[in-house]
Each structure stands twice: as C-alpha cells, then as structure tokens.
C-alpha cells in the first residue's frame, strides 16, 4: 500500500519513519468490543494509519453509552455499534480497509473474524469473555492487547501466544464473576480514553517491533491518585 506519503501523515514523522508508516499501512488489526475502550482504540488506529481494521461488536448504542463511548451520539441510539464504527473510520481515513461484524465473537465465527489479524485488541467488558478471547487469539498465534477499566482505575497488558495471561491477573477462569468492580464504580470517559490510548500505543509498538511492550507485565493506573505503575506478572 502506498498511502503513507499522503500529507495526512506528515505530523507522524519523525516519531514514525516512512518505512514504519508503510508497515502500519499494511497491518491488519482486529478490535473486539466497540464501546468505551474500542471506540477510542479504533479512532486512534484509523488516524495513525493502520491499513486494515476488523471491528467486532453485536451491540447497539443506548443512552447509557453516551457518557463515555466515543462513537455514541444521540442520533445513533439504537444503531449497531459496528455500523457506526465503519462510518466513523470512513470519515476519518478513507484509505483504511474496514470490515465490520455486527455480532459477538464466539468459537464458531472466530476464524472468520480474527483469523487475518496481526494483533487483536481486547476492548470487552466482561472477565469471562476475556478468557475466551485470549484462548481464541493464542490458538491462532496472534498477540492480544488487553485493557480494562472501572471508575478511575485502569489496566493494560499484552499477551503473546504461550503466555500465562489472564490467569495471572484474574485467577482461575472458572472461579470468576463475569464482571469486576466496574459494577460498583461504573466507567468514566476520561479513564476509558486514557486506557484506550495506552492500548493503541501497545498495538503500534507490537506492529512496529520497537519500544517496551507490556508482555507479562501489567500497567495499572488510578486517576484519583495519579498513580501509574508497571507491575511484573511473572
């Protein structure tokens, strides 16, 4: 793909080289979940110039999404999130190839939805579904960039095939409630978009093969106390 010379990427240089911009243009990323985290991740990956995006969510926007989900708007209440995401990416960057799946990822459709991606981004909102997504990504040898939020707290990690992954963060997959403390604390726009930014940064580093990636490490932050720490998981 020869789109990177477009003036739209002029401000990416020199932080990203021309060769790296071309690499992003040939990259394909699957974003699973198009809510608070997913909307931010898709917006940033489209702007920076990731060439192909596979976008997955079976939900429609409702009024409770408006406080934080970037792609939600009053006029699109009731509209599938995947359809709004396609429209938004097209409006931001028409050079991006977009495939949308207005469905939820499962074992049956996983190959079709995520089988072509170089990186999968976990923007889900349930712990049990994260374990399934990790299994689906690892069996396909695809790195997974995961983010999660609750109130003013957030966390980000990167799970490669063969890594222990979520069991180090959430414990036994069969000994977990489907939700965490977000049930008590809700989700806030500024925290969602901060964590989406951190996830986008990890995606770019994985695709470009440079920088420190959060493999086997967990970045935890709490905006109420301005604490940011990177913890070693193994």
């Amino acid at each position: 793909m020869k789109t990177p010379v477009l003036p739209r990427y002029a401000r990416n240089f020199q932080s990203i080289s021309l060769e790296e911009q071309e690499r992003l243009a040939s990259a394909r990323v699957c974003v699973v979940g198009l809510g608070g985290l997913g909307g931010g991740v898709v917006e940033m990956l489209a702007r920076i110039g990731v060439g192909s995006l596979d976008l997955v969510d079976g939900d429609c926007f409702d009024e409770t999404n408006l406080n934080r989900q970037l792609f939600s708007s009053e006029k699109d209440l009731g509209v599938p999130k995947a359809h709004v995401a396609r429209k938004r990416v097209g409006a931001i960057n028409s050079t991006v190839n977009v495939n949308v799946f207005n469905t939820f990822l499962n074992r049956r459709n996983a190959q079709e939805i995520m089988g072509h991606a170089q990186v999968v981004v976990d923007c889900l909102d349930s712990i049990s579904h994260r374990f399934l997504l990790q299994e689906l990504a690892q069996t396909r040898n695809i790195p997974l960039v995961s983010g999660a939020i609750a109130g003013t707290a957030g966390q980000v990690t990167v799970i490669y095939p063969g890594d222990p992954g979520f069991k180090l963060i959430y414990g036994d997959p069969y000994d977990n409630k489907s939700s965490g403390i977000e049930e008590q604390l809700g989700n806030l726009a500024h925290c969602a978009l901060l964590v989406a930014s951190l996830q986008s940064s990890e995606v770019i580093k994985v695709l470009l093969g440079r920088g420190e990636v959060l493999q086997n490490r967990l970045l935890v932050c709490d905006l109420m106390t301005n604490s940011f720490e990177v913890m070693q998981l193994v």
Binding site: G33, G35, G36, L37, G38, C123, L124, D125, S126, I127, R130, G147, A148, I149, A150, A153, G154, Q155, Y170, N176, K177, S178, S179, G180, I181, E182, L185, G186, N187, A192, V220, E229, M231
Partner: peptide
C-alpha cells in the same frame, strides 16, 4: 504492598 480488586470494564 499493593492490593488490587478485579477490573473488567470496557
């Protein structure tokens, strides 16, 4: 010592 609850929202 840091102790964390489960965080799972998106």
């Amino acid at each position: 010592v840091g102790i964390f609850p489960p965080v799972g929202g998106g």
